[in-house]
Design a binder for these strands. Structure first.
Lengths: 110, 110
DNA sequence: AGCTAACGTAAGTATCAACTAACATCAGGC
DNA sequence: GCCTGATGTTAGTTGATACTTACGTTAGCT
């Protein structure tokens, strides 16, 4: 549930691909595994990580287990990114204003 | 520069703390290291990772090196999160609409 | 009950990432 | 030029993590 778990879960390329697969449709574990060249248990472990991070939800259907992306699981990460984005942009605006104030017109050194 | 690099860089708690430190002010490598209980070389390596991910920029000032967060480095990740966020929310809206259409009023099983 | 399909779980292995200690580099002051 | 402060780099070690193989579990069918 924490941002730390969310980021660790998303840091793995396979898990990001899984998340894309179940973004707009439910898929069974086996169907998901069929998209990858690693073994089914490996995918099962990835699904567990994603589930514990709150990024997907599991629904049982007989012997099968269907997985679907959980948008609210990204809320914490989204807040983190947005906060960083806006404050940094605000800083840039400040710098730009300061330069205009000094009547600066030439580019600074790279 | 890739989303993969950005996520791998952010997955490390120390690197997130570093990023917070240099979000709205430039700091020298030594000043950053003073905030942590790990050695300076470790911080230097973290700074390299953040720099290669495009999340911070380095500026030389004599023997010192000053670091500052680079907001544009988060653009790719922000796009990734936002895309997921909106499409998943759209899916939720669809489901809700479908349920209303069926005249459903009771909560579904957890 | 017995069989099978679809899974998850456990144990063991190998690869990768974070850390420390020692060394190298670079800029400035004397 | 020499010394010092600030920092990056390299080599080696340890701990985490992604993987495979083997086994356990659950649900449905006959």
């Amino acid at each position: 549930m924490s941002v730390d778990n969310q980021l660790r879960a998303l840091a793995e390329p396979h898990r990001r691909r899984i998340l894309e697969l179940v973004r707009d449709r439910e898929l069974a574990a086996g169907e998901i595994a069929a998209h990858f060249d690693v073994t089914r248990p490996a995918i099962s472990q990835h699904l567990t990580v994603l589930k514990e991070a709150g990024l997907i939800v599991e629904r049982r259907d007989g012997a099968r287990r269907l997985y679907l992306a959980e948008p609210s699981g990204l809320a914490g990460l989204k807040k983190f990114v947005d906060r960083f984005w806006t404050t940094s942009l605000a800083r840039l605006a400040e710098e730009a204003a300061a330069e205009v104030g000094r009547g600066e017109s030439t580019d600074r050194a790279r």
